[in-house]
Amino acid sequence: MRNKILSISIFLFFSIVFIVFFKGLKETNIYTPDLDIKKEIPFFHAKDFYTGKKLNTSDIFKLDQTYLLNIWSSWCVPCRKEHPLLLSLNENKKINIIGMNYKDNKIKAEKFLKELGNPYKRVFEDLEGTIAIEWGAYGVPETFLIYNNKIIRKYIGPLNLNIIEEIKLLIK
């Protein structure tokens, strides 16, 4: 009798382990923690990409406005791919696209924007990658949707058509 209970409970235990692993496996595909974090945007100082003027958070982000902060770099290959999507999104007047130039060389970055077009209302520099960390970013490319000084969504990795559609829906 005791043996039976033991064996059944062990079978049950392994079944649960199986289910957990199975679910874990499904989840890893969308492995980005806190995609919609309603967090305040961080306070930071930065330099304007073109003018070299010092900026801080309130110079760039205003209340009651929608922003899309895009972290990019000229050496980042996926950034090139998502760039046309940003350009097309820029036609939507409701949204202001801001660029964060991540650990880049200025000449190359300028060349990048000249070649592919500039979707950004404003670009600021992050030479050391520290501002990206203030934002809780992982690397390039990464994109934040901001409204009312709050981060609405965060997209790790390159943007794609689905995400663009989602953004369009959200800003309506």
């Binding site: 692993f21 499904k26 890893t28 492995y31 923690p33 992982y138």
Partner: peptide
């Protein structure tokens, strides 16, 4: 092999593989 332990930015392997090994293992 399943990529269940991978961290962010190492984009997932073929999930079919993980499911197969998991079922086989159990």
């Amino acid at each position: 092999r399943s990529g269940i332990l991978n961290s962010v930015h190492t984009f997932a392997n073929d999930p079919e593989r993980g499911v197969f090994i998991l079922i086989f293992l159990f």
